[in-house]
């Protein structure tokens, strides 16, 4: 399946990546060639195959639900590009 420019625009919106027209063109070409490569899978009938859910046979461990860390607000905020006291700052969302 080829990925036309409108599809590139649509998925870039979903992925929250802004693209200019030139980039949209080149991506349409690249993504189409990748999808063409992927299309090889269609030759294989998988109707009766159960999809893989985990590659390790071990079952997940359970543990007590207890708090082991916390009080690390300053650490969490440390790398924020913009903060105000104990909050992350983002552009205004509501008028």
């Amino acid at each position: 399946m080829s990925i036309d420019k409108d599809t590139v625009k649509h998925i870039s919106k979903l992925a929250r990546i802004s693209l200019d027209e030139k980039k949209i063109s080149s991506l349409s070409k690249d993504l189409s060639s990748i999808m063409k490569f992927i299309e090889k899978l269609n030759e294989l009938n998988t109707d009766k195959v159960t999809p893989l859910t985990s590659i390790i046979n071990a079952s997940l461990k359970s543990r007590e639900d207890e708090v082991k860390d916390g009080k690390i607000r300053d650490q969490i905020l440390k790398n924020s590009p913009e903060k105000n006291e104990e909050f992350f700052v983002v552009p205004k969302v509501v008028e």
Binding site: S18, N79, P81, F88, V90, P91, K92, V93
Partner: peptide
């Protein structure tokens, strides 16, 4: 661009 790493400017949240 909120919690860590590079951040660019934008007129609203989605644009940012």
């Amino acid at each position: 661009g909120v919690k860590y790493g590079h951040r660019s400017k934008g007129n609203n949240l989605v644009e940012m």
